[in-house]
Design a protein around this nucleic acid. Structure first.
Lengths: 180, 180
DNA sequence: GGGAGCATGTAAGTAGTTACATGATTGA
DNA sequence: TCAATCATGTAACTACTTACATGCTCCC
């Protein structure tokens, strides 16, 4: 039910095409919700079939046509109904930590390489989030206010990436190293 | 595939019953892998049917019989094969952040209550993890070494809970409050 | 007598992944 | 000409959740 909630919440801020939503789910919103284009388009079709969002086909030059979806009044009510329920805690399933849990079975060099890969990825993601923070900080007051809550989720993204980065660095530093 | 990996990795440390594994997935290992008893028992049946783990029925007095599973040699090879693949990054789907993203549609009092509930939960979880850290720190050297990698995952659990706690406190402090 | 913890399971339904599929434009 | 970006979709499969199910012991 939460993909539905995430999509409705995004469309509540501004109308968007499936592709535009997808980019957000893979970038800024990627911190709190992940999805694939297959799932997203299916959900958009379902929401449209249920009359919760409106669809307008827009022609573009040099680019394929796109379908722009807008939250309508019924969709707003559905969104409010979903929001009324308590948020269940995130259920974590982290492949890297599972791998590290069994780390004693792996050659240290491979573990090190894996940790460095993740560390670099977290550095990049943190940099992206910090750019977004700066972008919002420089935005006009109206926009800053409209995006007050999204900015709070972004703040968690920053804290999350910082925690991972610190952890990767700590573990790399403390790893028993193979004799060279 | 990662539930399989998580189960094999746990049984690599020591034999256990489904119920014992379940408690770990809900407590100490709950940080990096979440599962239900339905999924877990199904996976144990599958692993046993494939000859990757051995099963011994153990009678207990005052308690129901239990099935104790042990990783065998083939299971060890399967574990190593799964570990050889790169760990894909965790895919986050966090209902609380989705709810907060749409926070402007909610009454501030309800948001506050939700955040306080999560803050309290994170405090409790952090306390649990810190107890486990202390427990490991006091363990004999042999055990400390055997559990070196599990302890690293626990460290991430602590950093993660601290980040969430900080975030909950920040957001609560910055929330526009309703007139009393 | 009731609830919590121990210990296991099946079945039905929903959500998510992987694979397959198309076709235009822009830049290296 | 090759890869990337834009933009959308279907189908098959796997993983996960929710609901249903049993039964014993210990403690209040």
């Amino acid at each position: 039910m939460s993909l539905r909630l995430a999509v409705l919440a995004m469309l509540d801020l501004e109308p968007a095409s499936g592709y535009a939503l997808l980019r957000r789910f893979q970038n800024s919103a990627g911190f709190f919700w992940h999805t694939s284009h297959q799932q997203l388009y299916k959900e958009l079709h379902a929401l449209h079939a249920e009359g919760l969002i409106d669809c307008a086909e827009v022609e573009q030059d040099g680019k394929p046509d796109m379908k722009v979806y807008t939250l309508n009044e019924r969709g707003g009510r559905e969104l409010d109904a979903l929001l009324a329920a308590a948020a269940t805690p995130l259920k974590i399933r982290d492949p890297l930590l599972v791998k590290l849990f069994a780390g004693r079975r792996l050659p240290p060099s491979e573990l090190l390489a894996e940790l460095e890969r993740h560390r670099d990825q977290h550095r990049r993601t943190l940099a992206t989030y910090e750019e977004l923070v700066a972008y919002f900080a420089a935005a006009p007051a109206e926009r800053r206010q409209r995006y007050f809550f999204p900015q709070q989720t972004l703040r968690m993204g920053v804290l999350y990436e910082q925690a991972w980065l610190q952890w990767c660095e700590e573990v790399i530093a403390g790893l028993p190293r193979a004799a060279g």
